[in-house]
């Protein structure tokens, strides 16, 4: 127990990443210095945006960035004590020495009946993304219909349920397998869901939302975005959070051909961040 195991990225992938793009590296357990805490990680978050980090955002052969929740093993700062659960960004490793000046380090509460992992899901960045996207960016109002792409993913599952809590009308999701589609409708309360591999997204969305949609929460871009623009009613809003479809391709796909409908239907498309941007700004 006095070593740390890290995941390093060892090469930049071309297209879909493989295990060979990564390697384990072991190192000694660091000792706590004043102004640091040693954390034993319990949950690590793995997120689609990391695919984009692999294209140059992460240094090769070095510890990686990522959200994590763990327990303080040793503390060199009176503000943190041993046994506390903390959230931080030194992911992809079994133990982390975290600088307590890092503003992203914070103590997380262990709520009764709420699993610790939720600090990385519904109570973490994904839940917050869903909330920000629906409430702050899209301004979802009661009775409005919502389409959510990548609906079986972290943000999507949170958003679909949250939309219902917020009083949305029809909530429609897309996912990539029949099992996920069933999960959305049977377990998560989506009104309708479809498998985007079953046919053109635009046709399936039109069938699922014959009266159109008011809000689109986009995680995907590409043909989903085009379909949403097609189905959005006047003054519809697009909250665009990342673009999974593009992470694997150096060349982004052609953007929607119907983009000018943004003018015709007076749509508002607003991007928002599920992560800090400082890694991405050139």
């Amino acid at each position: 127990m006095n070593t740390v195991r890290y995941v390093h990225q060892v090469r930049v992938p071309n297209g879909f990443p493989t295990a060979d793009d990564f390697a384990f590296a072991d190192g000694p357990l660091p000792s706590v210095r004043p102004g640091t805490v040693l954390v034993e990680n319990i949950y690590l978050s793995v997120d689609p945006y990391m695919r984009q980090m692999m294209d140059g955002g992460w240094d090769l052969h070095a510890p990686l960035e990522g959200r994590a929740v763990g327990r303080v093993l040793e503390s060199g700062d009176p503000a943190f004590h041993v046994g506390q659960f903390v959230f931080h960004r030194e992911g992809w490793r079994t133990h982390a020495l975290v600088d307590t000046a890092d503003p992203r380090l914070r103590v997380v509460e262990a709520f009764d009946g709420v699993p610790l992992s939720t600090h990385l899901s519904i109570l973490g960045g994904t839940g917050l993304s869903a909330y920000v996207g629906l409430v702050k960016i899209a301004g979802l109002r009661a009775g409005e219909s919502v389409f959510i792409s990548a609906a079986a993913g972290g943000v999507g599952t949170a958003a679909g349920q949250l939309a219902k809590v917020l009083g949305a009308g029809r909530v429609i999701g897309s996912a990539g397998t029949a099992a996920k589609v069933r999960h959305l409708v049977d377990d998560l309360g989506f009104d309708a869901a479809f498998n985007y591999k079953d046919g053109p997204v635009a046709d399936q969305l039109r069938a699922a939302a014959p009266d159109g949609i008011d809000v689109y929460l986009d995680n995907v871009g590409g043909d989903h975005l085009e379909a949403a623009i097609d189905s959005l009613v006047e003054h519809g809003r697009i909250a665009w959070c990342g673009a999974i479809a593009q992470y694997h391709d150096a060349q982004p796909p052609p953007a929607p051909r119907n983009l000018f409908e943004i003018n015709g239907k007076r749509l508002r498309m607003e991007g928002f961040a599920v992560r800090e941007h400082d890694h991405l700004i050139p």
Partner: peptide, 8 residues
Amino acid sequence: LYRVADYS
């Protein structure tokens, strides 16, 4: 266009 998402 994805820059709309990436740069809010």
